[in-house]
Design a protein around this nucleic acid. Structure first.
Lengths: 344, 344
DNA sequence: TTAATAATAGTTATCGGTAACTTTTATTAG
DNA sequence: CTAATAAAAGTTACCGATAACTATTATTAA
């Protein structure tokens, strides 16, 4: 016999609800979507039927049937296990979930190739929008997104963003420059940067560039050209610890170290403490992010505080505006704060 | 005119691929799914057509059309911004993504109500499976999952798991008991626990219970009954800092503190340092998790190290086995390690 | 009371894939 | 060279919801 694609499907359908309630499928559909044109009596009947047979709507069918206008939102993120991103994600997720949108999260490992693959996959689920965290998407990724005409929001770095895309975050170059100026106004001698590189990708590139430029722009003649050290590893406390050891072995005269993020900076602080190096007397240290650890250190960390949850919420808000065809700001910048701690 | 549901749909379809290649839709479908019964010549033609019109398959349609056998996997997680979970998630995510499955992540905020709501939503996307992180799902949630006959894997605590569900993780009660025994063998006097409570939900309940039981079971008569302090806040460095201040103000004779997790323990360490309290001379401190911060502390933290990434990978592996109808172990326990640091 | 109008409810076609079946073409055996 | 068989390709129905239209019933106006 023909047509028995799935006979053991126990799931309920609108059809059954309608039958049970003695109305048409369409009427049941209207009730469930709170559409007008249904009498109170009918509405009650339908809701009762829904209750009775434990109806679970099929969003797959709904999204597909209406020309693929789903409530799925693709979110590409470098990694889930980095505070910087996970809290942005949390903000996005909460906001989307609260209005019934469903995030489809994919990790890219900071690799354009992986990002590309994932975007291709996620587009096949016909999301209404895609959010890109931690920038640096390849031209192919971008082209693919353009063709698919889903809404795209870039989240994190707003430096050098092309004007044809929406973005939420702040200018990392500026943050790096700001910290560079602050540090070069207070210290002289050898400046260093300890960062991290994964899969050939330099994390926080724009902050480093800003920092470097600030050192070049300084009036002080006693600031020596920047030295850098990159770990081939994820940013972590340990990476900061080890990276500090490395940079100091190569450049023992290092006077100031700027780190990729707070966790690495704290790792550096621990290294210095373990070696009896005074902070900031011998070495000044600055981080980035305003991560939670910095709030309880006995020596408060000098860093740039970033409102991560807020970035997430704003990004989600922008996305929601786009998919509901409301006007949204092209570029949304959040305030950051240079926290003058006791380490630099 | 009738039937113009979506005329401005620019997306490509198999139909177009087929037309372009001069074959039937079905043949094109077979090529794209690597099915047998297609000649090499035809396969090339189809792939060329796919390339030419930049075909993006519609997974929505595919999943829906085949009786809702999707490759979506729902994942309920208390929060994204806690190291403990985010690294498990990372493990799950990577594994699923690598075989073309798509995680649908939802946060529950440790609230059974939110979890319930989210499960209802996610089920409407007809996932092939659902993973529950951080246990404590309500009976309603469980019932809903049962009815939907998706595969379910519980991840995190395997203590007291009913035998009708799959689980991956370890026994938190046992971990608490183990730490309690270790500590009560080494210290006497006032034992304390500093934890956290969100939305009326006590985090890490089973570890506390195990810890408490170990103290009751100790041979020492000099161990005083446990005192506890809970913050109405997420676990964090700051929560540990503040919680320590609180417990010490109420119980100045506290000799040992066990914390909900390492971050809180480190917060506690910083508090003690800031007050000149010697660790472990005046107060002994133990954490849980083996979080990254503990690896760089000048005073290594006594804690229980948990292979989070591995838990995630195993959980994903279990799920993949279930949905492909292979045999999977009902309960999968990972090894944990009590790290004897210098804080207790 | 009847005609005009508004509010409800019902019908039909459709989205884009795929399972199951049928038909055509190629290959091998006798 | 034909018959039996295997491989390749094509047909059709269907999944479950909804947009757009039509039909019915209730309400109001004249």
């Amino acid at each position: 016999m023909l047509h028995d694609i799935k006979k053991d499907n126990p799931s309920t359908s609108l059809e059954e609800v309608a039958k049970k309630a003695g109305v048409s499928k369409m009427t049941a559909s209207r009730v469930l979507r709170n559409k007008t044109g249904v009498s109170e009596k009918t509405r009650k009947k339908v809701l009762k039927a829904v209750e009775e047979i434990n109806y679970v709507p099929n969003r797959l069918a709904a999204a597909f049937g209406t020309g693929n206008t789903s409530t799925l939102v693709g979110i590409a993120v470098p990694t889930l296990s980095r505070d910087l991103f996970s809290q942005i994600l949390e903000g996005i997720e909460r906001r989307l979930q609260s209005v019934g949108y469903q995030p489809l999260i994919g990790t890219t490992n900071y690799s354009p190739g992986s990002e590309n693959d994932w975007i291709r996959t996620v587009l096949s689920w016909k999301p209404c929008g895609v959010m890109l965290l931690g920038n640096d998407s390849s031209p192919e990724t971008w082209q693919m997104l353009q063709r698919s005409n889903v809404s795209v929001v870039k989240v994190w770095d707003t430096h050098d963003i092309d004007d044809d895309s929406y973005s939420v975050g702040f200018d990392h170059y500026k943050i790096g420059y700001e910290m560079g100026s602050y540090l070069s106004n207070r210290y002289n001698g050898q400046f260093a940067y300890v960062g991290s590189r994964t899969e050939g990708h330099f994390l926080g590139k724009n902050r480093l560039r800003g920092y470097e430029q600030a050192l070049l722009d300084t009036k002080s003649t006693e600031v020596k050209p920047l030295v850098t050290y990159y770990l081939n590893d994820r940013p972590s406390f340990y990476a900061g610890f080890y990276g500090t050891e490395q940079i100091l072995s190569k450049h023992p005269d290092t006077r100031v170290i700027y780190y990729l993020d707070d966790n690495m900076a704290v790792g550096g602080m621990f290294y210095c403490k373990s070696k009896g190096i005074k902070i900031p007397g011998d070495i000044a240290i600055a981080g980035f992010g305003g991560l939670s650890v910095s709030s309880v250190l006995t020596t408060p960390l000098t860093t740039t505080k970033v409102p991560r949850l807020k970035i997430g919420q704003l990004a989600a808000a922008t996305m929601l505006k786009l998919v509901t065809e409301q006007a949204a700001a092209k570029h949304c910048e959040v305030e950051t704060e240079l926290v003058k701690g006791m380490t630099a």
